[in-house]
Design a protein around this nucleic acid. Structure first.
Length: 480
RNA sequence: GGCGGCGUGCCCAAGUGGUUAAGGGGAAGGUCUGCAAAACCUUUAUUCAGCGGUUCGAAUCCGCUCGCCGCCUCCA
């Protein structure tokens, strides 16, 4: 069950082919580092995939990268029409020799952040620049069918040829749109001010391709239509994106694709609500604008904690991100880690209490919550309840229950991506640390506690916390 | 002007007609420990922005008021 943007109600997600989800999620434009709001949307897509997989479905997951700069004013090619990628290149002129390098750099950074947030890899991650032929063909067909017209400044989609335009956003009253707050610059070549560009000609544009309409570049909307249909067919089961894409982007994709095929473009639509920071929209001028790098590399937060914080509120409600919510999430993620240590430490024991049934029940409830319109709040609560069960019985866990606990954590991680197994990387200081741990144990036996505490403090200063447990002293890395 | 959302404890937040209003964080007390840390136990909303209405029964439905927020042709 998902909230469908088209009908504005909760609908069962029914793939055309049973148990095979064809899913397209709109990716970022790579003129800059993606921020945490972008990633909230991509996490939503990730959770759709994970939930479908948990139900045993096959998922054909496509998420694009927009690496073509588009005009700031989509429908006009005048002096103000410098696109964002060109502007970014100008701002970072020394860093990148040309716009292609800039796009490649930010696309790589994006994929890097994507992995750190434990997001599933799509089946294909198509790039707009690598699908020029498909886009030109689509435009050509639209022109031939009379849905688009050629002008000296480019090719426009003829809105009047697609009366259903506006069915997704509810922006059906074209007159009301005209009194919108933002100035819409009118190109005299357009038949109707709402017609949108499929192909633009502009000598100043830094990326140019040859087409039947001369040198130019594609409009913003056509890439998604062309790439989605190439990889997933004429009708998708689900199309996702941020709430700002409802209009005009997805509205235009529908117009293009359905004019082309005469078939519904997507059976379902979901849109992730915006993230706000401290109750306000993120913006660079307010100083509340965060990228993954800002929080993880500079402030030392755990990327998994960031993921947790970004999914704490269901996708269909605005998420209020705060530093407090991030550190709350960090505590929870740490709890999962600790829980895994406890469970893994008990797998060799014999006997013990039975908790597998209760964990199975909780996992089932978490999955149910995800099936109920991706209710991540409830799913996370159920996941956390499971750690309570494991911790409560930790001293009585037998091997069977411990293995059930590990399996539970693995299942929760598959579904929610919040408790990945620790990747044990050998630390350079481990030999030295081991010596100190043994020395400290001797000191403790001799009741020389001041010296023992000094060792613990010494390591804490270096970001290593020592903890005494019934099974001996363990250590973990902490924020310095 | 058009379209849409939200207001639940100190903070985040679930719950959309019916047993005790999930869960997390924080705070307080306790257990364990040489001390820490972690974990565990207990406590922390007779009340859901306000006012009226419908109902045997409302945080949940309806109306009004107040407050906050998003989109409306660059934006996840």
């Amino acid at each position: 069950m998902l909230t469908d943007t088209m009908s504005r109600s909760l609908e069962a997600l029914e793939p055309d082919e049973p148990e095979h989800l064809k899913f397209y999620s709109c990716g970022p434009t790579v003129y800059n580092l993606a921020h945490i709001g972008n990633f909230r949307t991509f996490i939503t897509a990730d959770l759709v995939v994970r939930t479908a997989e948990a139900l045993g479905w096959k998922v054909s997951y496509v998420s694009n990268i927009t690496d073509v700069g588009h005009l700031t004013q989509d429908d006009v090619a005048d002096a103000t029409g410098e696109d964002k990628m060109a502007a970014a290149l100008r701002a970072a002129g020394q860093q990148f020799p040309n716009i292609w390098d800039l796009a490649r750099y930010y696309a790589d950074a994006f994929i890097d952040d994507w992995k750190r947030l434990n997001l599933r890899e799509p089946m294909v991650r198509p790039r707009a620049t690598e699908h020029m032929r498909e886009q030109i063909q689509a435009i050509n067909q639209l022109v031939k069918a009379g849905h688009a017209y050629v002008t000296p400044s480019g090719v426009y989609f003829r809105l009047s040829s697609f009366p259903e335009h506006g069915k997704l956003s509810g922006n059906v009253d074209k007159e009301q749109l005209q009194v919108g707050v933002r100035d819409v610059v009118v190109d005299d070549n357009k038949e109707h001010p709402g017609d949108f560009a499929l192909w633009k000609q502009d000598d100043k544009h830094l990326m140019q391709w040859f087409s039947p309409w001369g040198w130019g570049f594609p409009g913003w909307h056509i890439e998604c239509s062309a790439m989605a249909m190439k990889y997933l067919g004429d009708t998708l089961d689900l199309h996702a994106g941020g709430e700002d894409l409802v209009f005009p982007h997805h509205e235009s994709e529908i117009a293009q694709s359905e004019s082309l095929t005469g078939k519904p473009f997507s059976r379902h639509w979901i849109h992730t609500r915006f993230l706000v920071v401290d109750g306000e929209k993120m913006s660079k001028s307010k100083g509340n604008f965060f990228t993954v790098r800002d929080l993880v590399d500079e402030r030392g937060h755990d990327p998994i904690a960031l993921r947790f914080a970004l999914m704490a509120t269901p996708y269909n409600k605005p998420l209020n991100f705060t530093m407090q919510s991030l550190s709350d999430a960090g505590k929870n993620v740490e709890r999962f880690r600790e829980c895994r240590r406890v469970a893994e430490g008990a797998v060799d024991r014999t006997g013990g209490v039975e908790i597998a049934a209760e964990l199975d029940r909780l996992y089932g409830e978490a999955l149910d919550a995800m099936c109920d319109d991706l209710n991540t709040s409830v799913a996370l609560a159920k996941a956390l309840e499971g750690t309570g069960v494991i911790f409560r019985e930790q001293s009585l866990l037998g091997g069977d229950s411990a293995r059930a606990a590990v399996r539970y954590l693995d299942q929760i991680n598959e579904l929610l991506g919040i408790c990945p197994p620790e990747t044990k990387t050998e630390q350079s200081f481990e030999a030295e640390l081991q010596v100190d741990i043994e020395r400290r144990a001797e000191l403790k036996l001799a009741k020389l506690f001041a010296e023992a505490d000094a060792i613990r403090l010494k390591w804490l200063d270096q970001g290593v916390e020592l903890r005494d447990t019934p099974d001996g002293t363990v250590w973990k890395l902490v924020k310095p």
